[in-house]
């Protein structure tokens, strides 16, 4: 094996710049995490925050941190990871830089089923995660069928996605009108909010984040090959249909788990992978870890801003993401 060291390995080639950027993101994530625990209507200093995390006591400050801010920040981070991964996967699977669970309708599929359960069958609200997944997966399959015409073309995916999204969106609107007396919970669901999210939400979403992140890192090479185009990928020995279906299911699961916890939080899946691409390139071996860390960071920062900027009024984090994301989306469109 001595000789192997002298051979350059394209997989392990040390690209210090890329690692440095990811480490930089990581530093930013830690900063965002601490900031989110520090800020709020109750003034709590850093020492108390750290004490509450590592040596909890029964003081009010400790309880606020452990029961409110800490789980909320963790939920924000996990949601950011899942949506960023889902976006990065979908952009590769659909060979479309504008794919995002929100834009192409997967989120609205999850949202419609979620809202049906919340409004019509509130007693079954524990079914929201599984229902959201079924909705997300159905939307993904419908988009695929609509866009399929002897192969997948990026433009048809987007158009089919917009159509499906509008269709499910109409269903959501209709429900909100018919059951206007019950919409309060549904309204925050529509905008994506982390308000009052706590440990139960963390335990809902955490398994998806852990499994999704590990699988994404293992499947990075397959995505690198898939985006060379179907014929080339097949020629290289990739089972294109199975890979694409499996990855779409994975993205739908990641998006659905996030939707079931925060509702329809848009733009994270779009802007995070792109921001990472701009900084460290398109290789999925770097894109996935970069998206994981930056996704967590951005949602934590956005939620902290949404919670504290207009205190005592709290705005949904989805509004902040839209304000950040819409201009970025337009910027990408102009770059294409």
């Amino acid at each position: 094996m001595n000789n192997a060291e002298s051979l350059p390995d394209p997989q392990k080639k040390l690209v210090w710049g890329k690692y440095a950027v990811i480490v930089g993101f990581l530093g930013l994530a830690i900063f965002a995490f601490i900031l989110g625990n520090l800020l709020g209507s109750m003034k709590i200093d850093l020492a108390t925050v750290l004490n509450a995390i590592f040596q909890p006591d029964d003081s009010t400050a400790s309880l606020v941190i452990r029961n409110i801010r800490l789980p909320r920040m963790i939920t924000a981070a996990l949601v950011g990871v899942n949506l960023a991964l889902a976006g990065a996967i979908l952009q590769g699977v659909m060979i479309n830089p504008l794919a995002d669970p929100g834009i192409i309708g997967i989120s609205s599929g999850a949202g419609l089923v979620g809202i049906v359960i919340l409004i019509l069958f509130p007693q079954y609200n524990f079914l929201v995660p599984i229902g959201a997944f079924i909705g997300a997966m159905s939307a993904a399959i419908i988009i695929y069928i609509l866009a399929w015409k002897g192969g997948i073309q990026p433009i048809r995916i987007i158009l089919a996605g917009v159509a499906v999204s509008a269709f499910f969106g109409a269903g959501i609107s209709a429900l909100l009108v018919f059951y206007s007396d019950r919409v309060h919970g549904a309204l925050t669901f529509m905008n994506g909010s982390l308000s009052t999210r706590s440990w139960p939400e963390v335990s809902t979403i955490l398994p998806y984040t852990v499994v999704g992140t590990i699988l994404a890192l293992l499947l990075a090479e397959r995505l690198n090959i898939l985006i060379l185009g179907d014929d080339i990928a097949r020629g290289l020995g990739l089972n294109v249909e199975v890979t694409r279906l499996g990855l779409t299911a994975m993205a739908a699961l990641l998006a659905a788990s996030a939707v079931s916890v925060v509702g329809l939080l848009g733009f994270v899946g779009l802007i995070i992978p792109h921001a990472v691409r701009l900084m460290i390139g398109t290789n999925y071996k770097f894109l996935f870890p970069g998206s994981v860390v930056l996704g967590a960071t951005v949602v934590m920062l956005s939620d902290t801003f949404a919670r504290t900027a207009f205190s005592p009024t709290e705005i949904p984090v989805g509004v902040v993401m839209a304000v950040l994301g819409a201009p970025f989306f337009l910027y990408l469109l102009r770059r294409e």
Binding site: P8, P10, Q11, K13, I95, E221, N224, I225, I227, L228, G229, I232, L236, G237, L238, G281, T282, N283
Partner: peptide
């Protein structure tokens, strides 16, 4: 062919080893 514009030659060649 489509694909990533920033892939380098060695990395592209390495995809041939996938199978």
């Amino acid at each position: 062919r489509s694909g990533r514009s920033d892939v380098d030659v060695r990395q592209l060649v390495s995809y041939g080893r996938f199978a």
